[in-house]
Simulated scan of single mutants.
Amino acid sequence: MTSTAIPEGTDWAALLARTSFIELSARARAAALLDDGTARELCGPFDRIESPWLEPQGVVPESDDGVVVVKGELGGRPAVVIAIEQAFQGGGIGEVSGVKIAATLSLAARDNRDGTPTVAVLLLETGGVRLQEANLGLATVAEVCSALLELRALQPVVGVIAGALGCFGGMSIAAGLCTRLIMTRESRLGLDGPQVIESEAGIAEFDASDHTLIWSVDGGTQRTGTALADALVLDDVTAVRSAVIDAVGHGVPGRHRSQRIDELRALLEAVDPADPPEPADLAAVWANAVPPRGDRR
């Protein structure tokens, strides 16, 4: 985690009184976002829907396969929260957990078409596809992305990345497809994790032991500063819930971030791979690369 100076005038009483969102389990996070008394878990642990591939490889499975699905109301409107349990296999996605996410998004889309406008919230704490289920996990991530695209055309799909585990691998693509993305200062987002980059390209490309470097590139502050995420919030249940309700209130945009290909191309063209800017300068470089919204063609 990055070491960040505490701003002057910090309200320590409020800071110490807050309830950490990061420290909650996936099940508790999902319930905390929904309106009091409305949360109802689907495909819970007593249904014993677990991966058949882990035990033969010496891994003890979980009865919910590390994904929690809770239906309820969010700010008085129908919603479903899908939370990945970061404490199980590093939030890795396998066949069963991936299908749970994809099926939930597809059912939410069906509810919308049937007249029940249901929004979805994804709590993304994952290192990507579970190594023990490699190809199966990759296939289900593709299904997740397909179902997400189906739902986001009808209702907002809000992504939340809160903890230091972050969101990497295939599920980072799902994060990029979300209608809006919320992060904390402690969180991280990237396609490849620092250790993967170092192992493939060497320490000169990315030093996975340099935490300051990692958070300056992948951290929530950088991702929101460069407009790859939409809101930076305090690690606090109330703050995260308020940000999610606000994101849902924005509705479905005319064009999602992933559809603004002209803008994304301009951002890529603004960076010279042979002489990349310092992470702290990237936001300014990209701000000059894309014209103000009123001038966009």
Rank of each mutant, 00 (worst) to 15 (best):
Q86P: 07
F88N: 05
T184G: 15
R113Q: 15
L148I: 02
T118M: 06
S146I: 11
V121M: 00
L148H: 09
T140I: 04
L165M: 07
E125W: 08
S199Y: 07
T184L: 11
G90P: 10
M183G: 13
S199Q: 07
A204R: 09
G92Q: 05
T118W: 06
D111W: 06
V157G: 11
Q89G: 15
A204V: 15
V158K: 01
G159A: 13
L165T: 12
P117H: 03
T118L: 09
E125H: 11
G202R: 00
G169S: 02
C145Y: 02
C167Y: 10
E205V: 15
A108D: 00
A103C: 01
G202D: 07
L105H: 01
P156S: 12
R110K: 12
A109W: 00
T116Q: 13
F88I: 01
S172Q: 02
T184W: 04
I161K: 08
G92E: 07
L124Q: 04
S146L: 11
E198I: 11
A134D: 12
G163A: 09
A201I: 12
L105M: 05
T179D: 08
G91F: 01
L181G: 05
G115F: 00
Q86S: 12
Q132T: 12
G170H: 13
E133F: 07
T118G: 08
I93Y: 02
G94M: 09
G176Q: 10
T118F: 06
E95N: 12
A164V: 07
T104F: 06
A102K: 02
V141N: 06
E200L: 15
L189A: 02
A142P: 08
C178Q: 06
T179H: 03
T179P: 01
E133Q: 09
V121H: 06
L149V: 00
G169W: 09
R130C: 09
L124C: 13
S172M: 15
G202V: 12
G92A: 02
C145E: 14
S209I: 14
G91Q: 12
E200D: 15
C178E: 08
L123E: 03
S199V: 14
G128W: 11
L138M: 14
E125I: 00
S106M: 09
E143M: 11
A139S: 09
N112W: 00
L138A: 15
I93L: 15
G166P: 02
L151N: 08
A201F: 15
R130V: 11
A109Q: 01
